[in-house]
Amino acid sequence: MKMTRHTFLSALTCLSLALTPVPALATVDESHDYAMEAATSFVEQGFIVREDYWNGEVKSGQKLMISHQLFKGNEYAFWLGSVNDNVELDLKVYDEKGHAIQIDSKSGNHALSIRVNPQKTGTYKIVFSLKSKKEKSVMWALAYGYR
């Protein structure tokens, strides 16, 4: 079969689409996968991971805030994941007086983990951001666990 200019261009387009890097096909759930990967070592230490989580897409560098209920007596871990490459992740947890209370922070290529030991039962503010040098918007997922 003779290849026309049209079919050649179509084939070329298909090939280039197939070779396009992942971001166009990436989903927020892949960000959750990275968060869960970061959670693995915590699970080994007895943390119970919640199935519910937050996720979305945000402008690079934009700060986000979540209100969340924590209970004194539990130790919590939060895992922020992003499917995007080379993203600078930042996450802090503040008590009702506005004091940052996270006690440990570990950062990897696609995820950040922090631990929190709340001194009071009540509402806490989780403030985080994801900064990319290449992308205008970044996908994210935030999960947590307790023990």
């Binding site: 986000l64 805030m65 503040y94 506005g98 004091h99 503010k125 403030v127």
Partner: peptide, 14 residues
């Protein structure tokens, strides 16, 4: 000491 005022938060609230 990091302090934070949620009422003056400059970003988006989830």
């Amino acid at each position: 000491v990091q302090e934070f005022d949620p009422l003056a938060f400059p970003g988006q609230v989830v």
